Every structure is written in structure tokens, then in C-alpha cells.
Computed example of a mutant assay.
Amino acid sequence: MSVRILVSDPLPEGAVAILRGTPGITVEERRGLSEPELLPLVADIDAWVVRGATKVTRRLIEAAPKLRWVARAGAGIDNIDAAAARERGILVLNVPGANAVAVAELVFGLLLALFRQIPAADASLKRGEWAKARFQGRELRGKTIGILGLGKIGRAVAQRARAFEMRCVGHDPLLSEEATRALGVEPLPMKELLPRSEILTLHVPLSPETRGMIGAGEIARLPRGAVIVNAARGGLVDEAAVLEALERGHLSGAVFDVFAQEPPGGSPLVQRENVVATPHIGAATQEAQEAVGEEIVTLLLGKLRESGAIGESGPRTATPSRNPAHKKISR
């Protein structure tokens, strides 16, 4: 009997082709559907591939009696009711770090935009102005960057920070001091990292333990004039506390790619001149999406083979990737 896989968010054509080219699998692509629209579709599926748009709710999980695997093409799984999945014995798969280069590059793109006032300078020039004297900026060189989370993305950030001749301090409870120092990062506990961090960047998953991990108290411990970067998950940072610290000058700026509520609507934080923000585009590069797509379907097929749901024969149409973004960055 064929294994039925629902793909309810956009995946690269190559990733879908790998699934379709695998004997014993039937793939249905249905994108942009609401929960009521998804309910009849999940009744007979064995596996489900999503990105961030589809919400895999408890109601949908309960309506899918055959569902055994949910594969998230990306890192965060906050759009999946993981508790409901666990109760059913459903395996939730994800590929943290497949988009590491894309996110790390965006971090520095946002920082350079903030430090050199690039958005404002560009808008000024487009208005026909030549306000050169108005746009005196700052350099990244010599600044101390505090990195919370030294998984694949945090490591990619540290690597690029060193290229900018920045000092790197970091905190990751899952990494030994020796391993942290091998990355060119000085290991510090949180209470010591915050006062050292002229730039604080977060690269941790969103969980009950990390939600709101940077609030008013943590911001107060940063040096005056510090900058906060959140290109990880919305909800890690108390955005109201950031706004208050910007208004009183304790923070000199902030950059956000993710928000507790997306889209953030008319958030006063986004409107500030000393905030550079983007609409959750950290992983939105062609290279990253190809890497994420290929890695998640490869992982899913491996689990299907391990379970005996499909045979050992490989995909009929898969070809090795030549994408440099697919190179593994070891944790």
C-alpha cells in the first residue's frame, strides 16, 4: 500500500521531485489552506510536510488517525502542536541549521544597515537629497558581540563576526567551555555575558524555557548604547521592554526579523528610526530553501525506510546537489 504524504506549504521543486520519484509514495500538494480546508485532507495521510505557514493543530492531528510523521522544512516547530503529536506517538522532524548561512548573513546585513543608516540614506537619496553629513555611522570592528546559542546558526554568526574583527562572547549550556573556545568564542554565563555585550544576538529555539528570556531585567544589564538582534524566533525578546529601553536611550538600536505577533501590524517598535526590521526573511534565500527542502525530505525518507513503510530503493529522480549551502556545519 502506498504511503500518502501531504505537502501543505511551498517546497522547492527538487525536494518534491525526490518524494515523487520514490517508489511506494503518493504525494499531494495543497497550499494555503485553512484548518477547516485541511481537515478532510489529513484523514488518510501517513506523513505531512510543512514549513511555517501551516498550523498543525491538535484538531488536525486528532483528525489524522494514520499520521505518523510531521516534517517541518526549517528549524522552529512552534507552528506544530508538539504535545498533541507526542500523545499520539507522532514523530516531529525538523532540520535546524540548514538555513544557517542565510540567517547569519541577514544578521550582519541588518547590523550594517543599522550601524551605517543604510535604509535612511537610501531613502534620502531617492528623494533627490545629498545629505552626506547626516549619515555618520559606526563600525562593527572592535565591538563585542554576545551570542546566545551556539548551534549551527550561532556558529555561523561567530565565524562572520570574527571576519569583521569583532570580539565574540557566547553562552550555550549544551556546549562545553573547551568546545566554545574552539569556535573563537569566549564562554560566559548569562550574568557575565550581558554586561559585556555591545551587540546581543539570539540564536535559540522558542520553548517554554526560552520564551521572554530577554526582558527588562536582562536589557538593563546590557551596557548603555547596546544593540539587540533577534533573527531567531518571535517571543524570545520582550518587545515592549526593548521599545522602552530605546525610548530612554539605554539601547541605541535594535534589529528584528521575527516578532511575537506576525505580522506586527502598526507596532511602534518597527516605526522607530533606530530599528531595522524585516518580515521574517532569515531563511528566504534560494540556496537555503533548496537546502532545507532536500534535507527534510531526505530525513523523512530515512525514517520511512527505518520503519519499513517503504523499501530501501532510492528515489528514481534524485540527483546530488551542487549547492554550496548544503555543506554541513557540524555542531
Rank of each mutant, 00 (worst) to 15 (best):
1 M>D: 09
1 M>N: 01
2 S>D: 06
3 V>A: 01
6 L>H: 00
7 V>P: 15
7 V>N: 15
8 S>L: 00
12 P>E: 12
14 G>A: 09
15 A>M: 08
17 A>Y: 01
17 A>L: 09
18 I>K: 10
18 I>V: 10
22 T>H: 13
29 E>R: 02
31 R>M: 13
32 G>W: 13
38 L>K: 12
40 P>T: 02
40 P>D: 01
47 A>M: 08
50 V>R: 15
52 G>D: 10
52 G>V: 05
54 T>L: 07
57 T>G: 05
58 R>E: 15
58 R>W: 06
58 R>N: 14
60 L>I: 12
60 L>A: 01
62 E>I: 02
63 A>L: 14
64 A>S: 06
66 K>Y: 04
68 R>Y: 01
72 R>S: 13
76 G>S: 12
76 G>M: 11
78 D>N: 08
81 D>K: 05
81 D>A: 08
81 D>W: 01
82 A>W: 04
86 R>N: 04
93 L>K: 07
95 V>A: 04
95 V>T: 13
97 G>N: 04
101 V>N: 09
102 A>P: 14
105 E>Y: 00
110 L>E: 09
113 A>H: 03
116 R>K: 08
117 Q>G: 06
118 I>N: 03
120 A>V: 00
129 E>K: 03
130 W>D: 15
132 K>W: 14
132 K>A: 11
135 F>A: 09
139 E>V: 05
140 L>S: 05
140 L>V: 09
142 G>K: 09
142 G>V: 10
143 K>D: 14
144 T>M: 14
148 L>E: 13
148 L>H: 04
151 G>T: 10
152 K>Y: 02
153 I>Y: 02
153 I>M: 03
154 G>V: 10
157 V>H: 11
163 A>F: 13
164 F>W: 09
164 F>T: 00
166 M>N: 08
166 M>H: 04
174 L>H: 14
176 S>A: 12
176 S>T: 01
178 E>Y: 02
184 G>T: 05
185 V>F: 09
188 L>C: 05
188 L>K: 12
188 L>P: 08
189 P>R: 03
192 E>K: 10
195 P>S: 07
204 V>G: 02
206 L>E: 13
216 A>P: 08
216 A>Q: 10
218 E>V: 05
220 A>T: 12
221 R>W: 11
222 L>G: 04
225 G>C: 12
228 I>S: 12
232 A>H: 07
233 R>F: 14
236 L>T: 13
239 E>H: 01
240 A>D: 15
242 V>K: 04
247 E>I: 09
248 R>A: 00
259 F>W: 00
261 Q>H: 10
262 E>R: 01
263 P>Y: 11
267 S>L: 12
269 L>C: 07
276 V>N: 07
276 V>P: 03
279 P>I: 02
279 P>S: 04
281 I>E: 03
281 I>K: 13
285 T>Y: 01
288 A>H: 00
297 V>T: 06
302 G>T: 02
302 G>N: 14
304 L>E: 07
304 L>V: 03
308 G>P: 07
309 A>R: 05
312 E>Q: 11
313 S>K: 01
318 A>K: 02
318 A>M: 05
318 A>S: 06
319 T>C: 06
319 T>K: 11
324 P>D: 07
325 A>P: 13
325 A>W: 11
328 K>E: 09
